[in-house]
Amino acid sequence: MSRTVFFDAMDVIPDRADVFDHQKIPDEAEIPEHIERLLEEAEALFIQHAHPAGILSELEPKDFKEIFEGEGKNAEDAVVASIYPQADHLALFAATMGHEVSTQIEVLFAQNEFALGSMLDSVASQAADRTSTMLEKAFLDELRSREGNAEDRVVLGYSPGYCGWHITGQKKLFDHLGPEEIDIALNDSCLMTPLKSVSGVLIAAPREVHLFDVGFSYCASCQHHSCLPRLERLREAGGTDSPHD
């Protein structure tokens, strides 16, 4: 049973540090005023053109096996393979910023407004990631309201294309989830459109289940390393709070 969630664009605006990081501006850099203005302008355009929406579909861990195995192309040591069997609850998810914001980015580039187009692209990319974090929290809140506070339970999302879960896993995930409902489609290369979309599985499990040491065969070729700050937050967080609270 799927349910859709709509967000206010204002609520998914990413942290400025994340946007500047996406623009490859170092953390310690002093941001010039004209770049701050560009960010403000990009955020205003994002609010005007983004239509963030998500979809969640809960399923039993045993039912996830077939979806996860996909076309049999996962890495043998895929992290998710060791995590999901220990899950209390699972939900497939997808979220998108909508078509209009992608079109607006194209329009800006066509008008030679490259800096603004690129900044809006970064805002939208980071907003999509933020939306998946909000879905993690929404799922955790739902579990809490249903079952009360399970000690040390954490919900985290894992996506095809990362951590040894092959990108072709998107196909079965989409078959099961049906994100067409929020207007996300998948092409033959397993690419989602609109481009500013995310998908995967939300895994609710005790904190230690989500902890792992990086250094798998596929980590060397990973360009993102987005697991590192997440693992750091997870190690630092205490009690029953989600690491994204």
């Binding site: 623009q23 010039p32 004209h34 770049i35 030679n112 490259f114 800096a115 900044m119």
Partner: peptide, 9 residues
């Protein structure tokens, strides 16, 4: 930074 390059472009 990148935005400076793109403004110059």
């Amino acid at each position: 930074f990148l935005p400076d390059v793109l403004l110059a472009a």
